[in-house]
Design a protein around this nucleic acid. Structure first.
Lengths: 337, 337
DNA sequence: TTGTACGCGTTATCAA
DNA sequence: TTGATAACGCGTACAA
């Protein structure tokens, strides 16, 4: 491979001049510049990233670390949306993305430490995880950069982009109540999925019922595992146990698709209108889910924006060398078609 | 950040010794080794990847480049499966993955060239694309490493992992014929999606009909765009135009989900058994699709294996510094439940 | 506007 | 079993 020395020799200039051309310095005479560019083209020169990184102390790459294993991650449209959001922004900013999908929290934290401390990347996006507090604080103190999707610990004030699940649960429940439903099932997120103190969709559900004076029945709340199969089974149990249930709120799209199957099997397919039919509300309302079931409504979680904003925040944290206050995004309610 | 010099000083050894410990050389006395390790831990030392890459001329990362834009890629379960396969293998082999999702073929080829020639990665996995021939051959000649998912040009003999779409089309069509269907719709892959000379599922479809003595009717063959919406529209047109159609074969899973919606709207929901019902066959039969519709059968395309084998092949190409003969995977027929 | 010489942090070639 | 020193390819004070 040709180096800047080869280019310099061929163009009859010094390496510094070649470097200037490479870095778009304006202190180069136009004629010299074109001579250098010609030499580069002739030699098929491409600057060596490792040398450049070593010198500049920046890699131009960021890491995206998800702790749930490839089997889950690549089958979860919500995570795809987050990754897509981050990738799109990084692409616009000229960063590469290193994607890492270890199977558990400890491996994920190790990955973040490895990627940042060895300087494989300039910073990392990680999932908010219980037990990450000490490691994340250490990174922050030692000048390594990160942003988390959701809190890493309850008192975290900076470098995160969270989605308010409580507001989503409240909105969905209120909508169901407004249609006259009173026996409303909830398939909530798995406990300890992210961090124990994360505020749950169930809080919003409860609050909305309370405000409406509708009694809370814990048998109507089931824990899902964020998968289609999990949503199916949770819905089946819900329907078998309580024949009065007339609405189900799911905390994710795949679980809603699973629940939908349970409803279809029982002839309870949601009407396309909203009156009198069984009401099924999804948890993310992603474009990909609505392509499959266009009539599906529910909590529209801004997962793409979350990924995008996290990447944007990280780029700022890196370039400004300072932490940035966290952001909490509000989901909206999407009325079923 | 601490360097090996700091570690060397603290442990009272030379930098070379530190380097030896780092690289697990056995030429280090056990006592020295532990002294060095203690110093590393005390200083929170982590080797700098850029320096290491510069010296070793290897990065430990490979690039995965998909030319269809994030909007398509992250909504396509088949591509997720390919990426997942590659990521899993790379993880096992200790490689990082740089994921790049440009929006078109030209950008994708530029990405591959950039990542490999600037030595951001040791090699790249790319989609087989029309027009990639000259660039791919140049990379090969100049000692850059790649493997393609599918052919990059018709006479390509090495460094690819292809899935035989013709065999899949044949198997699915034969299955439909065996159930007595004679008016069989086909929603094929978009023309020019990958490369023009890629052999199409339609070839297998045609051949199977011919063998069975069933006349081929081009009106039964529709072009899809690999999306749910595209499958829906293609199925609608198919059903509107020909009331005799009793089976539809889709060349991808999302298109099958779209077609399924079209069938549901018309009360043609496939029976769970196979007799007398409308027959819908999917194109990939991925786990994620079957989670949504467990009864769906069709062509089971080994997309995960394709990604995994491509990554494996690339790792071999890199370490053995030689091209490796291409592989063609056969899909299997999955009978609907 | 251009050039010289050095340093970034690691590995490798020797010699000890 | 260890150590001194030269690369790797680029960017940048400093000098011209």
């Amino acid at each position: 491979m040709a180096t800047i020395y080869d280019v310099a020799k061929k163009a009859n200039v010094s390496v510094k001049t070649v470097s200037r051309v490479l870095n778009r310095s304006h202190l180069v005479k136009e004629e010299t510049r074109s001579r250098v560019l010609a030499a580069m083209a002739a030699l098929d020169f491409h600057p060596n990233s490792a040398a450049r990184s070593l010198r500049q102390k920046r890699t131009g790459a960021i890491g995206f670390v998800v702790p749930f294993g490839s089997d889950f991650v690549f089958h979860d449209p919500g995570m795809m949306e987050q990754i897509k959001g981050a990738l799109d922004l990084l692409n616009e900013r000229g960063y590469d993305m290193v994607l890492s999908v270890p199977t558990n929290r400890d491996d994920a934290l190790r990955e973040v430490v490895r990627l940042t401390k060895r300087r494989n990347v300039d910073g990392a996006i990680l999932y908010g995880m219980a037990g990450a507090e000490s490691i994340v604080k250490e990174l922050s103190e030692k000048g390594f950069h990160f942003v988390s999707l959701g809190y890493c610990y309850p008192e975290q004030t900076h470098n995160f982009v969270e989605i308010d699940a409580v507001a989503g649960g409240m909105a969905a429940t209120r909508y169901a109540l407004s249609l006259g439903h009173t026996r409303i099932g909830l398939i909530r997120e798995p406990r300890n999925f992210l961090l124990p103190n994360k505020r749950s969709i169930a809080e919003g559900y409860k609050a909305a019922l309370e405000q409406a004076g509708v009694p809370y029945d814990e048998r109507l709340v089931r824990e899902g595992d964020y998968t289609v199969a999990g949503g199916y089974w949770a819905a089946c149990r819900l329907l078998e146990q309580d024949s009065e249930v007339s609405a189900i709120i799911c905390s994710s799209d795949p679980m809603a698709l699973g629940a939908l199957r349970a409803l279809r099997e029982r002839g309870l397919v949601p009407a396309s209108g909203t009156e009198n039919g069984f009401l099924l509300l999804a948890g993310d309302c992603l474009p990909s889910t609505r392509a499959i079931e266009p009539s599906l409504g529910g909590i529209q979680a801004p997962l793409y924006e979350q990924g995008r904003l996290a990447a944007d925040m990280l780029v700022s944290v890196i370039s400004e060398r300072r932490d940035i206050p966290g952001i909490i995004l509000k989901p909206t309610m999407l009325v079923p078609a």
